[in-house]
């Protein structure tokens, strides 16, 4: 790999720009994609690798290309700068998530409680509009307060977020679904919300709850066959 290619690749990662490193096999000539001067079929294959978030070898004509897909980090938007949120950060970061904490209550959403984490003290619906969850974003609400959780869930349901989870007991969750139904969300939409949030591992402490949430996020992202939630 040449220094130029390495520098351009590292720059794209810093800019959070999706990029593909194409290597011709076995000779090892390399180029970065997309590139207007590259053949259409190579650019198209690179785009497919990014869309699927999967690197691999493709044969185009007589040439084998290894396409190494580099997507920007996944994102985890956590509404509620509560104790479980503090415990969630150290699980989410090594799993490849860039974490954003949303909570208008400044005493909760402080740098001291979340060192180095991006914090928004906007109202959750405004914060969600600003961060615009996409198909590489997970949203978790943890406040227990409908005034904060509901607007975030409403916005999340209107987005392509791949995971939506809401902390709360079965009874709390049933009441929450009732309120979201009144906002016009149907059963299909509401079934996107994982509630009670997390895999059922009988979690008790904040780190245990955070572990169960993170495990569920990974399971949904990897299409694992997760057990159905207990009936409301």
């Amino acid at each position: 790999m040449t220094p130029d290619i390495l520098a351009a690749l590292e720059q794209a990662k810093r800019d959070k720009r999706p990029i593909v490193l194409a290597t011709r096999l076995p000779s090892g000539e390399q180029q970065l994609l997309p590139d207007p001067s590259a053949p259409d079929d190579l650019n198209a294959a690179a785009q497919r690798a990014l869309d699927r978030d999967e690197s691999g070898t493709v044969k185009l004509g007589d040439t084998d290309w290894f396409l190494h897909a580099y997507n920007p980090p996944l994102r985890l938007i956590v509404v509620g700068a509560v104790h479980v949120a503090q415990a969630l950060v150290p699980f989410a970061v090594p799993c490849g998530f860039s974490v954003i904490i949303v909570d208008p209550r400044r005493s909760f959403a402080s740098d001291e409680r979340f060192p180095g984490v991006e914090i928004s003290t906007d109202w959750p619906d405004e914060a969600m509009d600003k961060f615009a969850p996409d198909s590489r974003t997970a949203v978790v609400t943890l406040t227990h307060d409908p005034k904060l959780d509901d607007p975030a869930l409403d916005r999340a349901l209107h987005s392509q977020a791949f995971y939506i989870g809401a902390l709360g007991s079965r009874r709390t969750h049933a009441a929450r679904l009732g309120r979201l139904r009144e906002l016009g969300h149907g059963d299909d939409a509401l079934s996107r919300i994982q509630g009670p949030v997390g895999l059922n591992i009988e979690a008790v402490t904040a780190p245990e709850i955070a572990l169960s949430i993170m495990a569920e996020i990974v399971g949904v992202r990897r299409n694992a066959p997760l057990p159905p939630k207990a009936k409301l």
Binding site: M1, L6, L9, E10, K13, T23, L25, G56, T57, F66, H68, P73, L74, V89, A92, V93, P94, C95, G96, F97, S98, V99, G116, V117, E118
Partner: peptide, 30 residues
């Protein structure tokens, strides 16, 4: 917070190279 990418071996390799090491990178292609 930006993720600590434990898979970002290339960044590690680049840092080693910048520090004057001779470095090779192996990648699973298939």
């Amino acid at each position: 917070m930006n993720p600590i990418d434990v898979d970002d071996v290339l960044a590690t390799a680049a840092a080693w190279r910048a520090a004057g090491e001779q470095v090779a990178v192996a990648t699973v292609t298939e």
